[in-house]
Design a binder for these strands. Structure first.
Lengths: 338, 338
DNA sequence: CACAATTGTGAGAGCGCTTCCACATTGAAC
DNA sequence: GTTCAATGTGGAAGCGCTCTCACAATTGTG
């Protein structure tokens, strides 16, 4: 009951329960091979002493820490605005909680800070890692493979077949989104792509090119944004400046699309009549734009859960040897902008 | 160099360096009382073996874990939309990183899940805790005090003088915001308050009452929102329904204010000419509403950093005995809605 | 030149826990 | 009644590290 100084140890529990430390340990850890009466006495002792096992001592011998890192290698500003991260965290946490594992969040700003993250991982402070969204050349995948830490990426990583990952089929998503514009009769279709150091952005742009090629349409109208609303605004402005006659835009994220919609409204273009727009993500933003955004759904929470499940399999050794990949088909969500 | 199976231990480092384990340990831990040559040999050995200390073993003897929990006891949906959490995380992480501490994120959904969080904390998996935004009756403050874990709250906790916290003066903030409306000549001023189980919401409402009382204005027009945009929308609708003649609204958060602005636009009211609006938070949302929102700034990142600094003092014993509180004065930010 | 103070070092005792092993007990099988 | 497995139990060996303590080697002081 007293909480100051030196918490009760397993020895004390054993003494109070009148059993050996070994038996007490077994009783506490789901123990098989413990008589009902012993277990009962141990339980009582635990309760009356307020005993809680010392995780350091335990993990010293079990070689497990029962915690998992979520690594978010992202420049600060995006974390604030993008619903992506929060949802990823939620999906992972939900899965971990169900397995009595703790989530350790690593906010890995690139550069010198990144070294800190790598160091932490090397120390085997965690049993595994989920990497949320990573950029080219951050070396994370390589490092994780090198130290042999179980890990899963949410979103296709660069140099991708060495690690397990879960992703939406972004090429197909980009293609479908663009096709929607083609099918409604648009002929001058531009795109606002994401930063070219992220696979999701590259893949969606690739999909756009595929659809444009299939429809025999020109592919000059490309602008790059940074997945933020402000970035989308700037990109839209640039795009419309260069191609004032666009009648359709495929945007690589809803947040950017929201920015683009604002520019379209400002410049007196009606959506979708003058310019049709398709976004990407459908994480809550798309429902709130005006008009509500037609978009491609990324089931982030589900992806995160799936990824975490794969990680758990790696951690308990039940996963097959190589790197696995799970590709989820995209779903187009029709609202009012296309 | 090999990474599979059994990492190198301190013993091996010592052997390779030709010193005792004790000396190796000293050399590695900023050691005083180690000759330059010994230190050099140990450093070389560490490098060549790729040695990293085992944190479990270390914390077993030092009784420190070098990690700090951030507890976010919040229903899921808010975490996604509110910039508050991301910024808090960033402030805390920045401070922890500077002190070589790790951030362990505890997403504590209430109820059964809450028990998991409490259990984790009892286990002394962390050296301290920062609690981000807490609700009445979650018992967190009591529990933390009971187990004697160093902790700091960001935002005034319920039953507040038992734990250290950092907060903006929300009463003053609510008062100033309302006064702004009074001073510009509004006489029929309503408010959209936050949920009454959060101190920030209660305090801001209190400030509103103070300002209204001082100006001798009626205080019937109160609606309650949940700090989300959708909640603000609903509350605004209700408020205008009951009091169609309002000429000013003090809203307890920018997100809710954004919802309210939309309702005002929909119902054909001009802002600020017909109805003036003041928000609260200024975390990026306020700049993007149309028109841009006059609001009260909460310097969240700074608060989080301050809180973390206080926590660190508690952890290293340099803090004074009792519970401390830091109250930051609010700053009104004028834009176009009032 | 004797003595004390300082510095660097290694032996060894734990930190609190899990788990292997050996040793009773017991009950079933023949 | 003997033989064997199954079942509980405790002793004891670590897990990898830090840190106290005793001791040797060095330096400084009178």
């Amino acid at each position: 009951m007293t909480s100051v100084n030196s918490l009760p140890t397993l020895d004390e529990v054993a003494r109070v329960a009148g059993v050996s430390r070994a038996t007490a340990s077994r009783a506490i850890n789901g123990g098989s091979r413990v008589s009902a009466s012993a277990r009962q006495r141990v339980d009582d002792a635990v309760r009356s002493l307020g005993y809680v096992p010392n995780p350091a001592a335990r993990s010293l011998v079990t070689r497990r820490t029962d915690s998992v890192a979520v690594i978010v290698p992202e420049p600060d500003d995006r974390i604030f605005s993008d619903p992506f991260f929060a949802r990823t965290l939620r999906g992972v946490d939900r899965m971990l909680a169900a397995n009595d594992l703790q989530l350790v969040l690593l906010l890995a700003t690139p550069g010198a800070e990144g070294a800190r993250t790598l160091r932490y991982l090397s120390h085997r402070h965690v049993d595994g890692a989920v990497v949320a969204s990573h950029h080219r050349n951050d070396g994370l995948a390589d490092h994780l493979v090198a130290i042999g830490l179980p890990c899963v990426f949410v979103g296709r990583p660069w140099g991708g077949d060495r690690v397990t990952y879960v992703d939406v089929d972004n090429v197909a998503g980009g293609r479908e989104a663009t096709k929607l514009l083609v099918d409604r009769g648009c002929t001058r279709i531009g795109t606002i792509a994401g930063p070219s150091d992220m696979t999701a952005a590259v893949d969606r742009l690739h999909g756009w090119h595929e659809a444009m090629g299939a429809a025999d349409l020109p592919t000059e109208a490309v602008a790059i944004g940074d997945f933020t609303e402000a970035g989308g605004e700037a990109a839209a402005r640039e795009l419309l400046d260069r191609h004032p006659d666009l009648d359709g835009i495929a945007v690589a994220s809803d947040l950017m699309a929201a920015g683009a919609l604002r520019v379209l409204a400002e410049t007196g273009r009606r959506v979708p009549d003058d310019v049709a727009v398709v976004g990407y993500d459908d994480l809550g933003v798309a429902e709130r734009t005006s008009p509500p955004l037609t978009t491609v759904r990324q089931p982030i929470v589900e992806m995160a859960e799936r990824a975490t499940r794969l990680l758990l399999e790696q951690m308990d050794g039940s996963a097959p040897a190589g790197a696995m990949r799970v590709i989820i088909p995209p779903v187009v969500v029709r609202r009012d902008t296309a």
